[in-house]
Every structure is written in structure tokens, then in C-alpha cells.
């Protein structure tokens, strides 16, 4: 079980969190004209890297904040955790 450092609450076990996928995906702005391809890329296409991955987790059984976690998908090593408004 992973040990994730919530930037708001500190180190907590994985079972307090839920996984939220790739944190590098940016939602297209509202009301902006974009191509079908761009939209599909946003909705469906995700990379599945072997190694470092910046991902979203939500501390659902804690502060309920969405956080960013830089994790190695191969070794599970966690390098950094960030608040939702912080960038790597």
C-alpha cells in the first residue's frame, strides 16, 4: 500500500485516496472553438508511461483536496506531491 504525502495533511496511506488519472491533461477552455481531434485527445487519449508520471489523486477520506503526485509507475516511488494549484 502506497504512502502518499498529502500536501495539506501529511503522510497518509493509499486507502484514504482515490486515483484521478493523468495530471498533465489540460481541459480546453469553455466556449473555445476546437477541432474534433483536439477534443478527442483531451477526452480519450492518455499516455501510459513506464516510469515517472504526474498524476492526480483526491484525498477523499481526508481533506477532500485534489493533489498532484509524481510517481514512478514501475517502482511506485513517489518523488513529490503538490497542491492542485502548484506546478512541477
Amino acid at each position: 500500500m502506497l504512502y502518499i504525502k498529502c500536501p495539506h495533511c501529511g503522510l497518509r496511506s493509499q486507502n484514504e485516496f482515490s486515483y484521478g488519472g493523468d495530471a498533465t491533461v489540460k481541459r480546453p477552455e469553455l466556449n473555445k472553438e476546437i477541432s474534433d481531434q483536439e477534443w478527442d485527445n483531451f477526452v480519450y487519449l492518455r499516455k501510459s508511461p513506464r516510469g515517472k508520471h504526474l498524476e492526480l489523486w483526491q484525498h477523499i477520506s481526508g481533506c477532500r483536496q485534489w493533489i498532484k503526485v509524481e510517481r514512478d509507475t514501475l517502482t511506485h516511488e513517489i518523488f513529490t506531491t503538490l497542491k492542485s494549484n502548484e506546478e512541477l
Partner: peptide
């Protein structure tokens, strides 16, 4: 969670 996602991120 959906609302929190959009509000926070």
C-alpha cells in the same frame, strides 16, 4: 468529487 475536481483543478 466531480464538482471538487472542476473547482480545484
Amino acid at each position: 468529487s466531480h464538482l471538487e475536481y472542476y473547482l480545484q483543478l
